[in-house]
Design a protein around this nucleic acid. Sequence first.
DNA 1: CATTGTACCTTGTAATGCAAGGTACTTTGT
DNA 2: ACAAAGTACCTTGCATTACAAGGTACAATG
Lengths: 107, 107
Amino acid sequence: MNSQLKRGTLELCVLSILARRDCYGYELVNAISESMHITEGTIYPLLKRLKDDGNITSYLVESTEGPPRKYYKITNNGLLKTKELEGQWIQFYRSINKILGITEKGE
Amino acid sequence: MNSQLKRGTLELCVLSILARRDCYGYELVNAISESMHITEGTIYPLLKRLKDDGNITSYLVESTEGPPRKYYKITNNGLLKTKELEGQWIQFYRSINKILGITEKGE
DNA sequence: CATTGTACCTTGTAATGCAAGGTACTTTGT
DNA sequence: ACAAAGTACCTTGCATTACAAGGTACAATG
């Protein structure tokens, strides 16, 4: 899939998933890669950016299946950010569909 | 609007508009900027890339309202490219909406 | 004891939106 | 005659970010 399309939306996807439940990085890679191609080289730097900006926090949990997992939890700021980005996304994809002449009446 | 979101879609927007009618660059800027913020610094390099790749051709038309206009016309390759990108776009935005839990039943 | 799966991370490259700056023509106002 | 505003073209340089590639480390399996 066109990698340029993903810019700006992966951040929203990660935040949106973390808004529903805590996840560790590797889990996010697997969850999102069901819908589109992504790799760890994309997710880990993104998680670092989100943490540096105060949108998520992390905590370690030991695992019996391998190395310890670093779980991420969304913050209040992160929730606000999620709502903001979601609004931008909806407005954006509707604009594109309008230009393309695509109408969404049902599935 | 989030500039990262636009990556990869502006190309499709321009191609899609040119698939319907010939346009000159400044006209495209005005047409697209009705739906989202873009500037000439984005469109002109994009048109050059599309032309270099053989997706569009151009021809000059004199104007009584200012300098001559450079009209762009889509090629057969460009039409194929448009269909390909449109398919990618539809698949993409539906994937995102699925991850976000957004359903499009009607407007 | 080598391989596979899980799980973390970093470096370097390529792509591209856009602010900023530049050229040139036509019309309008003073 | 001259300035300003609108039309129309173009380029340079910066910031952002997806991802391939490469690295570390632990547990289970053959």
